[in-house]
Design a protein around this nucleic acid. Sequence first.
DNA 1: GGTGATAGTACGCAGTACCAACCATAGTAG
DNA 2: CTACTATGGTTGGTACTGCGTACTATCACC
Lengths: 148, 148
Amino acid sequence: MNDPVAGEEKPARDDLVDALVRTAHATMAVLTRVGAENDLSMTQMRALAILRGRRLRMTALADYLGLEKSTMTGLVDRAERRGLVARAPSADDRRAVDVLLTPAGIELGEHVGPRVAAELSALTGRLTPDERTAVRELLERMLDGRDE
Amino acid sequence: MNDPVAGEEKPARDDLVDALVRTAHATMAVLTRVGAENDLSMTQMRALAILRGRRLRMTALADYLGLEKSTMTGLVDRAERRGLVARAPSADDRRAVDVLLTPAGIELGEHVGPRVAAELSALTGRLTPDERTAVRELLERMLDGRDE
DNA sequence: GGTGATAGTACGCAGTACCAACCATAGTAG
DNA sequence: CTACTATGGTTGGTACTGCGTACTATCACC
């Protein structure tokens, strides 16, 4: 990665949409960078976060990630090869496979989380506590309004 | 992409960081989806946006995108093959290659932009005009605080 | 006019993600 | 209890992304 935070086009277009897209890019750049420092792709990081404290079937994990189940096979394969997750047969369905974090996976997840938070503070640190609360609430309102 | 808006982990962690990451994912999901509808990856979409109205060298474009120049070759190759951009020799440096949008590229860019805005309105639509202004300003303050 | 820097490209590698096809098991109908 | 259909995962093939390491052509300078 060259300069992960580069690439701001359309300097001063009107809308909220623009701010949203630029924020998303900046945030993703941070995630990508922190991930790369730990040899994790963003998808892998998400999977680690999602698997925190639970055990999910391949399909369920695919749904959370918004990916095809066929994509999961490779993703879990690689993570398993690295010792971050493990596959286990599901109790109630012999076709199904559960995925769960190994101790190494848990540890890495617990290392990466705070790193992301710390790096993102570089962005959020410019705001006052009140403003931080305000953005958070507004963003959450936006997110909650989604799925109809 | 299956369900581009899925994947919300850590339901109610404390921080702004969380809201930021979730917003980024949701936004990126929209971008990815709209891009896919037009056979554009997110990187290609960004490139189209960056090239709007200007003509950039490979290296300059790489810097904007935060990518290695070796990555650009393939990216521009594919876009060129699709007739979206063209390469042209640079006026003042015979080593350099300028990249610019073709009419088709311009047209596609002008089609995709509004589509993105429309789709993202599904997110922002939940806010009142005042709130929209507030988030925009706060996000912009965060973004401006970056590069030291 | 030689030397080191810079602009792009070529090539090989690994990862991501898709689709279509495929087994195995489940669930349901008859 | 068999037959049919649906579901869970994997396999194999394709395309794209992005990196690092060469390599060529040009530039800039002294």
